[in-house]
């Protein structure tokens, strides 16, 4: 059985404007009311120049990046991320991905190394395992 996905394949980059609205909406949608994700003044008191994106939103965006690419029948199995440079309002995060393994099986799985860079550095490094769409389902 062959799949259209190969080790070394690069996913098209996805640029996400990091707006204040995205940061706040993501925090609230993930039920995260930590003040550093919605209150700039309190964020500054805690040593940050402004509010910053919470890890759950980054996680959600990484997941979306993968399923946008592989299609709605692809299923996320594992998402492991590490945060670095924070996503502050006004920045743009550019997600890139590269397939590092493809495992045969029913369904087959792909492992994708993901990075997200913003204007001040590497915001996120991650590894995602995704169950690939069944044959004939691509683009479904």
């Amino acid at each position: 059985m062959t799949y259209p996905y190969r080790v070394g394949d690069e996913l098209p980059p996805l640029e996400i404007p990091v707006t204040r609205t995205l940061i706040v909406a993501g925090a609230i949608a993930s039920r995260d009311y930590q003040d550093v994700h919605h209150d700039a003044e309190l964020a500054r008191e805690k040593g940050s120049p402004d509010i910053f994106m919470n890890i759950l939103t980054t996680n959600g965006l990484v997941g979306r990046y993968l399923t946008d690419h592989f299609g709605p029948t692809a299923v996320l199995r594992k998402v492991a991320i590490r945060l670095g440079a924070p996503n502050h309002p006004g920045d743009v995060m550019r997600l890139t991905g590269r397939i590092t393994a493809v495992r045969a099986g029913e369904p087959a799985e792909a492992v994708v190394h993901v990075t997200g860079d913003n204007g001040i550095g590497r915001h996120v490094t991650g590894t995602v395992t995704v169950a690939l769409p069944q044959k004939g389902e691509e683009g479904a």
């Binding site: 909406a25 949608a29 993930s30 039920r31 939103t57 959600g60 997941g63 709605p72 996320l76």
Partner: peptide, 26 residues
């Protein structure tokens, strides 16, 4: 969640909807 993330996948809508897996912690 999908509105915030800009996630338009049909997997998360309709009668057979599942939750985005990354919502696990939420």
């Amino acid at each position: 969640w999908c509105e915030a993330m800009g996630d338009t996948s049909p997997a998360y809508r309709g009668p057979d909807a599942v939750a985005p897996p990354t919502m696990l912690q939420a």
